[in-house]
Write a protein that binds this DNA or RNA. Sequence first.
DNA 1: TAGGAATATTCCTGTAAAGGAATATTATTG
DNA 2: CAATAATATTCCTTTACAGGAATATTCCTA
Lengths: 113, 113
Amino acid sequence: MNISVFGALAEANRLDMVELLLQGPMSVNEIADRLHLNQPQTSKHLKVLSDVGLVEVHKVANRRIYKLRTRPLAELDEWLGSFRKLWEERFDRLDDYLSELQGQSDRDAPAAP
Amino acid sequence: MNISVFGALAEANRLDMVELLLQGPMSVNEIADRLHLNQPQTSKHLKVLSDVGLVEVHKVANRRIYKLRTRPLAELDEWLGSFRKLWEERFDRLDDYLSELQGQSDRDAPAAP
DNA sequence: TAGGAATATTCCTGTAAAGGAATATTATTG
DNA sequence: CAATAATATTCCTTTACAGGAATATTCCTA
């Protein structure tokens, strides 16, 4: 898992951008307008997103069209896969750990409290 | 989506902690040892994880056992769901957007320059 | 209750990063 | 080529935060 993706998404405006771009590719000014940001900030944030591969740019005449890239999100999804069993199957090794802590002596453990 | 989760995971040691805790609940010193961190740093990072709900603590005698919480990860998974179609079905609204930009006038567009 | 684990907290410092404002750059169009 | 639209970059200031070191706290045990 590329940790920089988390860093990029850890900023509110950038998270908004990513969600906005779900609607489709968009120019800088369009993004700025929709999110009520000024243009320089928008460009800066887009650069961060671009650096971590969350968006790609396409030059079209005067404008730069930013488009969401699926790859990093797919990788995030994959990473989450390791954890998915945590909530799909009941996962609670706490009890195991606790009895392990106590020297796992008492063989006849009590039922679930 | 709670953005603070991204913030918490945006730090390498904390990401390591979360992945480590996938193996099961663990005490502070155990975590510190395994990740080659000192105890104070470990406690600090665990506090951050705890504040965003990624872990929960159980007091056992002298120790504090930290355990992964599924909720925020499940929510992250759910959030990702909005994007999942991006890579599952082909998703490329760029062409649509481009022709939309050009006023969709010229029906017979030229090939790539 | 004193001593000692296990853990949390505080203080300090350096650094990364966000926002504002101004300016530079690139490309279009007349 | 001049003027202008669209976007990127730079400079500055402020703030958040990670790491180190020291210390406080909590809880067990003899």
